[in-house]
Structures are given as structure tokens and as C-alpha cells.
């Protein structure tokens, strides 16, 4: 067991409000949290169209559908339903294509074609900014007991860094990144101004 970054989607506010900072050393303007949100949106929110308009719209071929690794985290993961009334539910993955959208940020020109083409509003332009960002979870750069800068600088309390097991109400979306899902009711975390 290692330390995991825990993201509480229900508490997540836009970056300007939450004041999340990033200490990624290779790029001073790096927005590590934004790059995580992109991956989480593609994993949880994307409806995984069989014939994806976003992939067809991209003029640079920067978007592709990547089959989830057999037995990997994404293969095991159940899709969060964004169905009628937005009631949170889990849909067996057999009903869905498990291919996940992946953006090659070295090919992406930030033209925003995919954001306009997506019929469900999964992608928006702030999510896929042209300067690429990366999150390495500060691995190898933290003192024992120290938390990453995003966790300590986040004012809305949506981030935590702990040694936890993923259980009910949480999903390990990416390696060492756990997303806390809201209990019930409307699926609000990704709604406007969130």
C-alpha cells in the first residue's frame, strides 16, 4: 500500500476558487490538477461512443480510443451512469465499450474542435489547454509525512493524500488516484461551475 491522492468530486471547485497550486518542477506553469481532471473526465464522464465524434473531429489525430488494459484499473472499473435524472448508478461494463479516449498532448493544437463536436459536453476547452501539464503525484519529491502542494494549497478541502483502500463510494480511477463519488442524488460534481 502506498499513499494515494483522494479527490472529493462533490467538493471540487473551479481552480481559480480552490487556489490549487502545483509544484511540478520541470515546468513552472504546470497545472497538474487540470491534467488529472482531464483523465478523470475521460474515465468517468465520457460516454465512450462507438463512433466518437470527437475522434473524428480532431484535425491532428490527437484523440484516440485506447482499449483498457485487461485486468487493469480501467477494465475493472464500472462506468458511473449519467442516465436519466442523473441518479448515480453503476452500469456493468459489458454494456459499454471500454475503450477510453486518450489525448496525445504533443499532437493537440488546442483548436477546440473536439469540445464543439462532443454531443454530451464531456470535453470543454479549459480541460484541454494547449500547454500540456502532467501530474507525477510528487513521487520521490516528498519528505516522509509531507503532502503534495496541491493538497496543502487547496482551499475547498476536496483533496487529500492518505494511505487508503478504495471501497464503497470511492473508485481508484488511475493508479494511486482515488476519486470519492457523491452518495446519491443528482450527479453534480461536473456540472457548471464545478
Amino acid at each position: 500500500m502506498g499513499m494515494k491522492l483522494i479527490i472529493d468530486l462533490a467538493k471540487c471547485k473551479p481552480q481559480e476558487e480552490s487556489g490549487v497550486q502545483c509544484s511540478y518542477k520541470h515546468h513552472p506553469l504546470n497545472k497538474g490538477f487540470d491534467s488529472l481532471m482531464e483523465l478523470i473526465r475521460f474515465a468517468l464522464i465520457c460516454r465512450r461512443c462507438e463512433v466518437a465524434p470527437c475522434v473524428n473531429a480532431c484535425p491532428q489525430g490527437a484523440l484516440e480510443k485506447v482499449p483498457s488494459e485487461k485486468g487493469g484499473l480501467m477494465d475493472k472499473m464500472l462506468l458511473v451512469s449519467t442516465g436519466p435524472r442523473g441518479v448515480l448508478g453503476k452500469v456493468p461494463k459489458d454494456n459499454f465499450h471500454t475503450d477510453i479516449i486518450k489525448r496525445a498532448n504533443m499532437l493537440c493544437t488546442g483548436c477546440g474542435s473536439c469540445a464543439i463536436a462532443c454531443p454530451f459536453g464531456t470535453i470543454y476547452t479549459d480541460l484541454i489547454q494547449f500547454p500540456s501539464s502532467e501530474c507525477d503525484l510528487c513521487k520521490g519529491r516528498l519528505e516522509p509525512g509531507e503532502k503534495p502542494l496541491c493538497v496543502t494549497s487547496c482551499e475547498d478541502g476536496s483533496l487529500d493524500y492518505q494511505d487508503v483502500h478504495a471501497d464503497d463510494g470511492t473508485e481508484e480511477v488511475l493508479e494511486d488516484i482515488v476519486v470519492k463519488l457523491p452518495g446519491s442524488g443528482l450527479w453534480e460534481p461536473f456540472l457548471k461551475n464545478k
Binding site: I45, T82, R85, G86, A115, I116, C118, P119, F120, G121, T122, I123, Y124, T125, L186, W187, F190, L191, K192
Partner: peptide
């Protein structure tokens, strides 16, 4: 004609 965030909200709600 909707922006992505409105499209998303509409599809959810």
C-alpha cells in the same frame, strides 16, 4: 446552440 458545460448539464438533468 450550447456550450459543452450546458450540453452536459442538459443531458444529465
Amino acid at each position: 446552440i450550447l456550450c459543452p458545460k450546458c450540453k452536459y448539464e442538459l443531458n444529465i438533468r
